[in-house]
Design a protein around this nucleic acid. Structure first.
Ligand SMILES: [Mn+2]
Ligand SMILES: [Mn+2]
Ligand SMILES: [Zn+2]
Ligand SMILES: [Zn+2]
Lengths: 157, 157
DNA sequence: AAAGAGATGAGATTGATTCTCATTAGAGTA
DNA sequence: TACTCTAATGAGAATCAATCTCATCTCTTT
């Protein structure tokens, strides 16, 4: 049961879905069936995925969605801050779904490729301080830490 | 004159030059005229540059150096940690010369494209702490902060 | 000078992403 | 329903930095 003092928050990705719809509205764009299919696939995706994976996944559904539309919709969701584009050092980009107002950075294992997410408040604070000192107005940032993960360290010493 | 207590440090980029020569030696590779030309150009370069700029610059000299060799040598210098490859959000990569043992991160203005360098010891410390907590052995990292630089802020409010 | 190993360069190739533009879908109107 | 108008889509072409190929060159060593 829902605690009485908690407002009944929309479940699933209702907030994100709504945010995207309002974003499209604001821009005078329509929520087409194709855009809806991409949005649904992305909101339900977990972890880091390639654009091509979305294309492949959607091929299994009834509605055909072209590669171009997948890329275009991912761009829109990125502008809406529901999606982030990642450069993990590979030749092509990865994307990930980000819940409204959340953020994290990445530890990337150069041995096995594992990507671990973390969030550190102190780190964010220090970054903000650096920006303040430079009179720089930050919009977003990307921190990638490369090295060996615990599992790989234990294997090879 | 050199202070007596300071060891006579090699000037210019003697240390980096030596480091590269030893690196090649260790790998059983030769310091060819082409590699030397690229190394010289890179060590004397300032700021962030594209691979293509090195190709163009070297075309003006007596010795012809192919694009392939420029890319190959930049990769070697990267392994030797004399060069870093940067993704500034543009479609192609930038490179920069890094002095032995030095490091910095970047503030990138999304309005004018200006790139400001900074180094913050506290930031590095907090990062190290995050890694320790995750049992992660860091080799290197890349922090990019995007936003508006002071100049752009003053122009547009 | 002959042999062997690495290095080079011109040009072909790659491949993720973007672009083009003819066609389609959908909202609004009469 | 039929018509209009505009945004959206999709198939395939184009892009272009980066990589690859492989014939040729350069050294060093016998
Ligand atoms: Mn992530
Ligand atoms: Mn720099
Ligand atoms: Zn690992
Ligand atoms: Zn600026």
């Amino acid at each position: 049961m829902t605690p009485p003092l908690s407002p009944p928050r929309p479940s699933g990705h209702q907030r994100e879905r709504l945010a995207f719809e309002e974003f499209l509205e604001r821009r005078g764009l329509k929520l087409t069936r194709q855009r809806e299919a991409v949005m649904k696939a992305v909101l339900e995706a977990s972890g880091h995925f390639e654009a091509e994976e979305v294309v492949t996944l959607l091929r299994q559904g009834a509605l055909r969605v072209s590669r171009a539309t997948v890329y275009r919709t991912l761009d829109l969701m990125k502008e809406c801050q529901l999606v982030e584009k990642l450069d993990l050092g590979t030749p092509h980009s990865y994307y990930e779904q980000v819940n409204l107002g959340e953020h994290h950075d990445h530890l990337i294992c150069v041995t096995c490729g594992a990507v671990t997410e973390f969030h550190d408040l102190e780190l964010e604070t220090v970054q903000a301080e650096v920006c303040r000192r430079h009179g720089f107005s930050i919009t977003h940032h990307s921190l990638r830490i490369f090295g060996q993960c615990q599992a790989c360290l234990e294997k090879t010493g």
